[in-house]
Amino acid sequence: MTQPPGRPDPAGITTIGCVGIGTIGGGWAAYFLARGYDVRAWDPSPDAADRVARLIDAAWPALTELGLAEGASPGRISVYADLEEALDGVGFVQESAPEVLPMKQELLARIDAATAPETIIASSTSGYSMTEMAVAAARPERLVVGHPFNPPYLIPLVEVVGGERTAPEAVQWAADWYEHIGKSVITMDQEVPGFIANRLQEALWREALHMIENGEATVEQIDRSITDGPGLRWPVHGPMLTFHLAGGEGGMAHMLDHFGPSLKSPWTRLEAPELTSQLRDSVVAGCDSEAGSRSVADLVAERDSAIIAIRKAIEQLRQGRR
């Protein structure tokens, strides 16, 4: 790939800065380590180093099964109490601080001031636009959103988009970088509130809460309706191609012509329900019931094992088409 003047070649980057190493940031750190990079991390929590070490240890078996890069080691992470020290010499920065806008604005400005001008800085934000987050940065042209999905060490998708003051070449560089490290990248043409995948997830989430609140379905029924239903199709074909196939030989055109009128049926409740204490307790109780004796750690291990199996099966299908 041809790099714009001043930007580093993704293949030449050796050290990654991770700012914020909670669940998402720690997942990113584990992924970067598995790809053979050194990670310099910063987090204000006094127990950050111990917490991220536990997260990496838990993720490493799954990453090992998927395949480690040469030189990959969970020991190649350093956690610092000083942000500027942590970012010294890094070739790329992944910010994963909590979703608090003033915090993001201030932190991105500090990262911008502490790193070389050619270094791209990406935010893991799941809801804010880069336009609103970059207001305090001196060099907003190199700030992008690199929105991952939990857990970042297993789910390949990253949505990349810049803000109003982000340079287009910075967006392209970030997309190239994520692809270089093995991610599946959607490069968005414009900022969209909630990005793409979150918008689709949230629509499903709102409908699920309404059905629980109205006593129309239980937590377990809702989960099974996806895991044993459309969820089995989605790893291979997304919702659009799934409906394309629903039209038979006529494809999407037949599906829309035949089923299109039903889209106006009053099924949906797109407005979010009021999260009352009763609804909150019902959802929590339903999740506890569905989890049964499985702890959170058990569920994480179960999820990771299933994702690995699904990813391997899909890769075999794709290789068979080549």
Rank of each mutant, 00 (worst) to 15 (best):
D9T: 12
G286T: 02
G250E: 02
S129D: 04
Q278R: 10
V158A: 14
P102S: 01
I222V: 13
I121W: 05
A137I: 02
S184N: 08
T218Y: 01
A136E: 12
G215Y: 06
R322S: 09
V19Q: 04
I111P: 02
V160Y: 10
E164Y: 05
L108E: 00
L83F: 05
N214E: 14
E191T: 07
D304M: 05
G320L: 13
L241E: 09
A122I: 13
V171I: 14
P235N: 06
A170E: 02
T166S: 15
E164G: 14
F195T: 02
D257C: 05
G320V: 14
S124R: 11
A114I: 03
A134D: 08
G248V: 11
S277Y: 00
V39M: 12
Q94G: 09
I212V: 15
A301I: 07
W267H: 14
P152F: 05
D228Y: 07
R233V: 01
L256V: 09
I212L: 10
A30W: 01
E65G: 15
T242N: 06
E95V: 04
D257H: 13
V161R: 01
V283Y: 01
T2A: 14
I56V: 15
R76F: 02
R142Q: 12
E132Y: 03
Y80M: 06
Y153E: 07
C287I: 15
Q105T: 03
R199H: 00
S123R: 07
L204R: 03
A109E: 01
F259H: 11
G229F: 04
G286M: 09
P74D: 03
